[in-house]
Write a protein that binds this DNA or RNA. Structure first.
Lengths: 156, 156
DNA sequence: TCAGGTTTGCTGACATGTCAACAAGTTGGG
DNA sequence: CCCAACTTGTTGACATGTCAGCAAACCTGA
């Protein structure tokens, strides 16, 4: 090849305006949602793990499966579970059928916490995001997000 | 008031599908861009600070102004600048006219680093995001992002 | 059976982000 | 001028996230 680095295609005005708005929107939206959950005594990290647990029929999941639901690696999950266990939100239970395994079980406090936090969180997602979009925009953004995901999601 | 908490308006199928795709897209897009910069020897945090510095006519900015550009608080900025200073990317220079102030100055290495990293970063933003959108989608997403920003941006 | 590879979860070291508090400097009303 | 309020940057403690590596348990093919 005679050329492995073309001149960079810098962003034009329209593109950089969008990119900046996009980045800023994320930062602030995350901050608002995080703040909203903090008012209910939990972090986004807590929430992300408590939701799949509370939706599980048994009220518990293998650490492996919880990690997959949240898209977290094992290490991060283990650290976070330790902290949540110390706060009484979850408990670790040995797995009978696979001695390597650990079930993460929602405690009554954990269930109370997620049930207390969830309505306010959903309301905040609506107030600060969904309710600002009309149905056609929701459809289009869904399509875009899924298209981008297809590109950036780790190859299965 | 007879009622301060209505029944939560949970997300319907369309909404939750969008919300999930949205969250996942962000997570993976951030990861891909971070990885791309890591290949050039820097983090997104480095990049975010080096860009305004490199665009400044003097090659330096007051810490105050750099923080405002990046939308960072003073503490985070100070810690990050210390780490970047240790790696030789920036230097701290006293401000003559305000003894409280500190200029953050781009070093030659810092400039070399940002100039080496920027083209690949822009290319990655295009490959993994912008080039997947057509112009009307870009316009719509810009409008949506700015509308949401208006709602979630801290009140000036 | 059993040796090698894989899966699972944990840990410690380190990098990064948040928070409250501090110290020094600047500013503005009286 | 002077003092209270504000601004600016730093620091230390702590919370969180990443990474490499460990050890135990599981699985699989010869």
């Amino acid at each position: 090849m005679t050329e492995n680095k073309a001149a960079p295609r810098w962003l034009d005005g329209t593109e950089s305006r969008m990119w900046r708005a996009w980045i800023d929107m994320h930062r602030h939206l995350d901050r608002v949602l995080e703040q909203n959950l903090a008012d209910a005594g939990m972090s986004m990290a807590d929430f992300v793990l408590l939701v799949p647990l509370s939706e599980s029929p048994e009220g518990q999941l293998r650490a492996r499966d919880l990690g997959a639901e949240a898209g977290w690696d094992r290490s991060r999950l283990s650290h976070q579970i330790r902290r949540m266990e110390q706060r009484g939100l979850v408990a670790r239970v040995d797995c009978e059928t696979d001695a390597r395994g650990t079930f993460i079980r929602l405690t009554p406090q954990g269930r109370a916490a997620i049930e207390a936090a969830a309505p306010g969180h959903v309301e905040s997602v609506r107030e600060n995001f969904l309710d600002l979009l009309d149905p056609s925009e929701i459809d289009l953004i869904t399509a875009v997000a899924e298209r981008v995901l297809e590109r950036v999601r780790p190859r299965a």
